[in-house]
Design a binder for these strands. Structure first.
Lengths: 232, 232
DNA sequence: TGTACATCAGTGAACGCGCGTTCACTGATGTAC
DNA sequence: TGTACATCAGTGAACGCGCGTTCACTGATGTAC
């Protein structure tokens, strides 16, 4: 029967969801190295081997968490971007930056899993590539729209990127920000890495004993980086 | 006898050095979560409990590795900075950036230990604070010297940092770049976090399937960030 | 210079713990006729 | 609608492993008189 097969499937999907949720909670407490199938099984009220009906190995569970993480961050960024005036490109850039920082502060271990040290011995499969770009796609759309609207007025005196980067930039442009010239792609990348560099510095403790006014510093740095791209 | 006491002390110092070196080699292979006292003891040809004559716990060994790491990176940066023309501030900035990237690529797990995800459950003691700033001090000296020489010509159109950051910047200025105005401190911080953001992106896999010409991109981004600070 | 004592490095056994993964099994749920 | 069979979820025991840390001990090295 079709309905009953899908009943079994629904239970299965629900339990799979529960497992990843418990795993995510444990990740939030212990960090990735402390994530254990046995602990998850214990909290599920299952015997440890039962987990293998749902995930063939610990690495596959990690992969699920990574994909979920990228999607959660991506969605937070999408929501933040959609909340403002679509024509206010500077505001959208700042909203995206704040969404990234806000999500990272709320989910430090998940952020560390996505943008921190790689987990030793873990090789990310191809399935993570799409979700990993979700936030970047939002960013690209902002730059693209701003460029098309003629709203980018980058400051003078900055050198053009060397021709050897044309191929990389071409690939990037195709996926992220079609129609945007190399010069803008280069500045865009600078700002984007600067965003994550700043968030990582704060989250990973490099501002300890140094910077107290972290939100103010963050906003100022992001405005500066936005200005570099031509947003004012 | 003084000479013989120091003989025992010399042996002790030598063995301590050997332990940290073996630990560092294991760190390089396995990463921080895989570092184990027992494995170190095995490679030393000792019984595992003997390590406790030298380090009271695994965390203390980790601390030693972290301090050594900051010092190694700091020294690499110092050497790179000293190699060029002291009056060529842009060249010095670029040399420092390349030294950081070069060291990170050569010691990825050590870099991850210093600038990646925090080790869960590990609290860095106060002894790490000094060495952690060693590279930053070099950077600060360059900016300070460039500023004093009147060699900084930052681009126009960038906003000044908000007054709420004055206190943080004052503290930072005192330690790192005395006599440098807030405006320059702010841009300097932006460039510095951008440097580590770019290195981390490359090392932690964010450029996979995206950027192939990593050295060229790195140099271009660093030149751009240097230009932002006023180096041309 | 020689002897009694104190310091220290290293041993070996043990405690108590947790982990990922495999495998033969039971029993419930779904399918086909 | 009822029965025989196939699929699948979950069990329980086991394998084989590694870890940090403690503790009573032996024996060598250094110190003081």
């Amino acid at each position: 029967m079709n309905a009953s097969r899908s009943a079994r499937e629904r239970v299965r999907a629900e339990l799979t969801r529960e497992i990843t949720e418990i795993a995510r909670r444990q990740l939030a407490v212990e960090g990735a190295p402390g994530l254990s199938l046995r602990a998850v099984a214990r909290e599920m009220g299952m015997v440890s081997s039962a987990i293998y009906r749902y995930f063939p190995s610990r690495d596959d569970l990690l992969t699920a968490l990574i994909i979920d993480g990228y999607n959660a961050l991506g969605e937070a960024v999408e929501v933040a971007d959609a909340a403002g005036d679509p024509g206010d490109f500077t505001g959208r850039w700042l909203a995206v930056c704040r969404a990234v920082r806000g999500w990272a502060l709320a989910h430090p271990h998940e952020y560390a899993l996505l943008y921190g040290s790689p987990v030793p011995g873990y090789q990310a499969p191809q399935d993570t590539v799409g979700p990993a770009l979700r936030d970047t796609v939002v960013y690209g759309k902002i730059i693209e729209a701003a460029h098309k609207a003629g709203a980018l007025t980058p400051p003078d005196g900055f050198p053009a990127p060397p021709p050897v980067l044309a191929e990389d930039f071409g690939r990037l442009r195709a996926v992220i920000m079609p129609g945007v010239p190399d010069d803008v792609v280069a500045r865009g990348l600078t700002a984007w890495t600067g965003l994550f560099g700043t968030v990582s510095f704060e989250l990973f403790g490099q501002f300890n004993n140094t910077i107290d006014e972290r939100e103010a510093l963050f906003d100022h740095v992001m405005i500066t980086l936005g200005r570099l791209v031509g947003l004012r």
